[in-house]
Amino acid sequence: MDKKKDFTAIFKTNYPKVIRLCLGYTEGREDQAKDLAQEVFLKVWQSLESFRGDASIGTWIYRITVNVCLQEIRRREVTHIKIDTAVDQTISSEEKEQQFTTMYRCIDRLPPENKTIILLELEGVPQSEIAEITGISHQAVRTRIHRIKEQLSKCVRNE
């Protein structure tokens, strides 16, 4: 196994997903997200030879990313989520910004594990993979996503 060659390919394939997830945990602060992504890939490099292949490499890297980001949250005790989602194109940019701000405030109130679940869902990660990453059952992920969406909808309407 050529570790350097394998790592380069893994990095190129997974960096965009990792940086987006890190941006979500840093409220879009690119410098902080890059620091977290660097830490993620340092851990990937250090652990690559011990990767057993029980899950896909992408799932394994998502798990490392989530762990690194949650460690940072616990360290700072403050977290904000930035989610780039499609917003109705007929509304003004100020209204869009207000919607995002409201959504961020609501997401910020979620427990860390629920933030992880909704962020991964919005990233388009399959629910079965979210279950692997978070260590909870697929059915529990489906139920949580439904409940989180209901909770966020109520929160946004009441803001």
Rank of each mutant, 00 (worst) to 15 (best):
T79P: 01
H80D: 08
I81W: 01
I81Y: 02
K82D: 09
K82A: 11
K82C: 08
K82W: 14
K82S: 11
K82Q: 09
I83T: 11
I83V: 14
I83L: 14
I83H: 06
I83G: 01
D84R: 11
D84V: 13
T85S: 12
A86H: 04
A86M: 06
A86I: 10
A86D: 08
Q89A: 11
Q89L: 13
T90I: 11
I91L: 07
I91M: 13
S93N: 14
E94Y: 10
E95L: 11
E95K: 13
E95M: 09
K96D: 01
K96I: 01
Q98E: 10
F100D: 06
F100A: 07
T101H: 12
T101R: 15
T101Q: 14
T102H: 03
T102I: 14
M103W: 06
Y104S: 13
Y104Q: 13
R105C: 09
R105Q: 15
C106S: 06
D108E: 15
L110Y: 02
L110P: 03
P111E: 13
P112L: 04
E113Y: 03
N114V: 02
K115C: 05
T116L: 03
T116Q: 01
I117L: 11
I118M: 06
L119I: 15
L119G: 04
L120W: 00
E121Y: 11
E121Q: 12
L122I: 03
L122D: 00
E123C: 06
E123I: 05
G124R: 02
G124D: 02
V125A: 05
V125Q: 05
P126E: 10
P126I: 05
Q127A: 05
Q127K: 14
Q127M: 12
S128D: 13
S128A: 11
E129H: 02
A131N: 06
A131D: 04
E132F: 03
E132C: 08
I133H: 00
I133S: 01
I133R: 00
I133P: 00
T134G: 07
T134A: 14
G135P: 05
I136N: 07
S137C: 09
H138G: 04
Q139C: 08
Q139R: 13
A140W: 01
A140N: 07
V141G: 00
T143S: 10
T143L: 09
R144Q: 09
R144H: 03
I145K: 06
I145C: 04
I145E: 08
H146N: 08
R147C: 09
I148M: 01
I148R: 00
I148H: 00
E150Q: 13
Q151R: 12
Q151I: 02
L152C: 03
L152R: 02
L152M: 10
C155N: 00
